[in-house]
Design a protein around this nucleic acid. Structure first.
Length: 471
DNA sequence: CAACAAAGCGCG
DNA sequence: AAAGCGCGCTTTGTTG
């Protein structure tokens, strides 16, 4: 391997300075709309109460009541599973043989077509939103309206960070409705606006630094190429032009990323099939569902997706197996070789080391020892940038404060007169300066920015064109 | 009553 | 051969 690695001393220094920088972030705090919290929690609780009332009118509730009597609890998933799967024999689920409990996660329940189950799922979603997120924020917000989430560097075995009290790193965003409800709680200080700067595909870029796969590097360097679109096209047997936004999303999050993290075809096929069935994904520019399109291409069924049995020809599972074979055997074969080499080296030495000088020693599984140094080093790019950005804000006596960090993004409360300076600075540090210090970064880095309007909330953030900043 | 484990789910 | 990973938080249900 190259000599471009950081030393253990440098790794220590990064942790030391990182912890100091993050403690400043923590001290800064993020402003909370406490009135909005109160109002919204009440609203959620009312809607949930309404749903529970309606559920008590359903015949399923009668069965529930007969089975559980005074112990009946409409919030207990275990009870629900027993009612649906044992008492009423609706649908199928799996039994955990160790604990003898029935599975009742949202994928399982979604397959049961009944209004009672829909209401139950909705009620649970509202409860999680209310108690974990809004409640968590409310309980930790100080009298001055500032929230000070804690950031840790000494906990994750990957050498990433974690956050608690409350966890600032898992506020909803994928579900638009819940994301809005929660993120409207976060507002800017007076004359400030919330700004989120995040690295684009930093894990993939850092992975490319380790494996030096020419095909992967080409995808990163050539802006006209799009790996996720291409993989979606291959998975769904489309031309690249026929790949819709949703199809690309599926290719990215249900094939490419899981594959990079060591998942395997059966799980990918299962997830993608469910997604196109439920979300009714179409061939781009037409009304034709992907489901139908695949049927026309000779793929009529999903397949068993059981790791024990070989996939049957003509199933989606079999097709995705072929795509996987092509992915590692042809497209990214240098990456595949690197993974084998990395694993063998680790088995020989008993440890592996990240580019950033952090050592992973102890017992790891194959996927872990391959992923952690990538995941860790990707976060260290963010941490390094945060440290330097913080230093520069202080040096320039700026009013802008960094208020949070989410693995590959930095959230700041930026003074209205400092917006352009801040964005230019953040971009310069995190894409240019870092590469002068860490020579192991052999591919370009990119950042994207989202800015919320003055007086707006974290939810109101809009894409900001960094190109418009000029040199 | 407190302490704990398990399940589930939010994010990257 | 194996078949993603890491976190934090809440609720339920059990145990002592």
């Amino acid at each position: 391997m190259s000599t471009k690695h950081a030393s253990t001393e440098e790794a220590y220094r990064l942790m030391h300075e990182g912890m100091i920088a993050l403690s400043e972030v923590e001290a800064n705090g993020i402003r909370i709309d406490t009135k909005y919290l109160k109002k919204t929690r009440k609203k959620l609780q009312n809607e949930r109460r309404q749903l529970l009332e309606e559920m008590r009118e359903d015949d399923i509730y009668k069965v529930w009541r007969r089975r559980y009597g005074a112990k009946t609890n409409l919030g207990a998933g275990e009870q629900l599973a027993n009612i649906l799967f044992v008492e009423m024999g609706m649908g199928k689920t799996k039994l955990n043989l160790r604990t003898m409990k029935l599975k009742r996660d949202s994928d399982t329940l979604s397959k049961i077509d009944h209004p009672f189950v829909r209401k139950w799922q909705r009620a649970e979603k509202l409860r999680k939103c209310d108690s974990t997120f809004l409640g968590g924020i409310q309980n930790e917000t100080c009298g001055d309206g500032l929230l000070h989430p804690v950031f840790n560097l000494h906990i994750p075995i990957t050498y990433r960070s974690s956050s608690d009290s409350p966890n600032f790193q898992n506020f909803p965003v994928r579900d638009p409705e819940i994301g809005k409800l929660v993120r409207e709680s976060f507002i800017s200080r007076k004359n400030h606006q919330l700004v989120e700067v995040d690295y684009g595909a930093v894990e993939v870029r850092v992975a490319a630094c380790y494996n030096e796969d020419p095909a992967l590097i080409e995808y990163i360097k050539d802006p006209t190429k799009d790996m996720h679109r291409d993989m979606a096209a291959q998975c769904f047997m489309l031309k690249p032009k026929q790949v819709s936004k949703h199809a690309r999303y599926s290719g990215k999050n249900m094939f490419v990323f899981p594959q990079f993290y060591g998942d395997f075809y059966a799980q990918n096929a299962f997830a993608m099939w469910n997604y196109i069935e439920e979300a009714k994904i179409c061939v781009e520019g037409t009304e034709k569902s992907l489901y139908k399109h695949l049927k026309k291409q000779g793929i009529k069924k999903l397949g068993k997706c059981d790791p024990e049995s070989q996939p049957v020809k003509g199933t989606f599972e079999h097709h995705i197996q072929q795509v996987e074979r092509d992915f590692w055997g042809r497209r990214f074969k240098v990456y595949a070789k690197w993974k084998d080499r990395w694993w063998r080296e680790y088995q020989k030495k008993g440890w592996a080391e990240s580019f950033t000088g952090f050592r992973f020693s102890g017992v790891y599984r194959r996927n872990e020892i391959i992923n952690y140094p990538i995941q860790g080093a990707a976060f260290h790019c963010l941490l390094w940038s945060l440290i330097e950005l913080q230093k520069e804000l202080r040096r320039r006596k700026m009013k802008t404060v960094i208020v949070g960090q989410i693995h590959d993004s930095i959230i700041a409360d930026v003074h209205k007169d400092e917006l352009e300076d801040y964005l230019a600075l953040a971009k310069e540090i995190s894409t240019k300066q870092i590469r002068k210090v860490w020579k192991w970064i052999i591919v370009p880095l990119e950042v994207e920015a989202e800015v919320s309007p003055l007086g707006g909330s974290w939810h109101d953030k809009k894409e900001y064109d960094l190109e418009s900043l000029g040199a």
